[in-house]
Structures are given as structure tokens and as C-alpha cells.
């Protein structure tokens, strides 16, 4: 399906010109089909730049990015790569093209030159996946923030991509909108096996991923499961990232002498663990 491999990727803005700035340095990594990868890092660490390399919006200064074996630097495969790798940007208002919801979703397939019946089918399907069937004839500017981002996702889905790259899709949303969008993404990943690459600065979202990449200063400094990454509190703190709430709480309790195992970062895990400890303590004390 969608295998993305990044080799020795370096990107320098304004290369060879005044104002030259290194944004990414020597990134290596592979993303397997069906994976949910979160990319986190402080502002200016190169997250968005990396995301934009995956669908050939930006091209490597050095190194290469391939999607299913197609090299992004090859102009002949650029449009096929863009079809396979859908992308959703941060600002919901600036990425919607049409003035009716269903026209918005149709925009991508229309660009592919598909016959009208096929476009219709894809639009209906994408709208139902994104839960926007009832809004299909409304103008997008009247939707809520969460709905607008789900519409952007539907627009990307109508291209039948095998991978979805989202560049801080929830940064401008309220908590309810954030939940809606994350739920949609989780469903797509878990049920349809879509590869998802989520650039985010919300640790609560990174927690849901299968794997996390931590970027700092344009380098890939950590690559591991959430449990592995959130074990490294100090390293994260050094580059300006905080642990997700539950992981932080677990760490503090551990520091106070509570026997909480390493690698706990989910709220449910922490609760089970604490309940377990407390009942054991109480039964231990009474007997």
C-alpha cells in the first residue's frame, strides 16, 4: 500500500541565496502502510517542512523522499504522489475552495478529470465518512471549525489517497472540534487502514499514535512508540516539550516513591494502575 521512505533528507530554504536557512538535516526514516505516525517538536523544528516533503510540495535539497517507490523529485510522478498523499492544512478557512460543501469535496476528483458519476459517488462516500451528509448543500463558511476540518479531510479522501498528512489540523479548533477531528482520523486509521501522518503540538493527540517522531532544530531526535518517547522526560524537556498530563503525573508520583511502572502515559492506564495500588495497599494494610 503506502510505504514512505525518507533518506538523508536535508532541506535548506533559499539555498545558495542570502537568507539561507537550514530547516531539516539528515532525516532518515520509513513509514509503513497503515501506521499512525505523530510528528511533534517545538515551533520552528521543521515539522511542517517535513510534512510538505511527503507530497512533493517541497523538494529535498539533499536526499530523497519516495512514496510507494515514486520519487518526489521526479516531475512525472508528482501528481500521482499528490493523489496518493492527501493533505490537510492548519487553517480551515484558507483551504476551502468552493462555496458549497459538496462542491468542495468534488474539487479534487474534478481536477483528476473523472467522469461526473464517479465524482458524485466519491463525494457521497467521503461526506458520509466525514459525517457531513446533512451539511452537503450548505456554504462552508457557516460550518463550525471542527466541521470545516472534517470537510477538508473529506476533500482529501475523495481523491482515494492511501496516506493522509495533516499539518496541525486541530491547532485552530476548540476542544470539541479537536475531538471530532481526532475521532474521524482514528476511525480512518483503525477501520480503513489509512496511513496517517499527524503533525501536532498537542501531546494528548501524539499519545494516540502508533509511533512518534520528535523533531528538534531540524533533526529527528527521537523515533519510538509513545511509551518509549514519553519515558524520556528530561530529553523532551530540554528541547521544550512537556509530557502529556498522565505521564507527567505518573513521573511525579514515581518521584515521591510510588511504585508506578515506567512507560505509563495514558490516563486509563494510570487510573488502573493507581486503583490497583490503592486496593492492594488497603487489603495489605487490613489483613
Amino acid at each position: 500500500m503506502c510505504k514512505i521512505s525518507i533518506q538523508g533528507l536535508t532541506h535548506i530554504y533559499n539555498y545558495g541565496q542570502p537568507g539561507e536557512r537550514v530547516a531539516l538535516q539528515e532525516i532518515n526514516g520509513e513509514i509503513s502502510p497503515g501506521e499512525l505516525l505523530a510528528i511533534i517538536g517545538p515551533n520552528g523544528s521543521g515539522k511542517s517542512t517535513l510534512a510538505r516533503h511527503i507530497n512533493a510540495l517541497l523538494l529535498p535539497t539533499c536526499g530523497s523522499v519516495t512514496v510507494d517507490g515514486l520519487n518526489t523529485a521526479d516531475p512525472a510522478s508528482r501528481w500521482e504522489i499528490r493523489r496518493r498523499v492527501g493533505m490537510v492544512l492548519q487553517n480551515p478557512d484558507n483551504q476551502l475552495v468552493a462555496s458549497v460543501v459538496e462542491e468542495e469535496v468534488a474539487f479534487g476528483p474534478e481536477n483528476l478529470g473523472l467522469p461526473p458519476e464517479e465524482v458524485r459517488q466519491r463525494v457521497d462516500r467521503a461526506l458520509s465518512v466525514a459525517g457531513l451528509v446533512e451539511q452537503r448543500l450548505r456554504p462552508p463558511h457557516l460550518l463550525s471549525g471542527g466541521q470545516k476540518q472534517r470537510l477538508a479531510i473529506a476533500g482529501a479522501l475523495a481523491m482515494k489517497p492511501s496516506c493522509l498528512v495533516l499539518d496541525e489540523p486541530t491547532a485552530m479548533l476548540d476542544p470539541a472540534g479537536r475531538r471530532e477531528v481526532m475521532q474521524t482520523l482514528l476511525n480512518l486509521n483503525r477501520q480503513d487502514g489509512l496511513t496517517i501522518i499527524l503533525v501536532t503540538h498537542f501531546m494528548e493527540e501524539a499519545v494516540l499514535a502508533d509511533r512518534i517522531w520528535v523533531l528538534s532544530g531540524g533533526r529527528l531526535v527521537m523515533d519510538g512508540t509513545p511509551a518509549q518517547v514519553f519515558r524520556c522526560r528530561e530529553a523532551l524537556q530540554k528541547i521544550g516539550l512537556a509530557l502529556p498530563g498522565p505521564a507527567e503525573l505518573a513521573w511525579r508520583l514515581r518521584n515521591c516513591g510510588w511504585p508506578i511502572p515506567d512507560g505509563i502515559y495514558r490516563l486509563e492506564e494510570l487510573v488502573t494502575c493507581l486503583v490497583d495500588l490503592l486496593t492492594r495497599n488497603r487489603s495489605g494494610g487490613s489483613s
Partner: peptide, 12 residues
């Protein structure tokens, strides 16, 4: 940004 969004969706 809109131009980027259109390019993402294969507008040529």
C-alpha cells in the same frame, strides 16, 4: 495558502 491547498488537490 489557498494556492497551496489547490495544488495539494491536484489543481493544474
Amino acid at each position: 495558502e489557498l494556492a497551496t491547498a489547490m495544488e495539494i488537490r491536484c489543481y493544474r
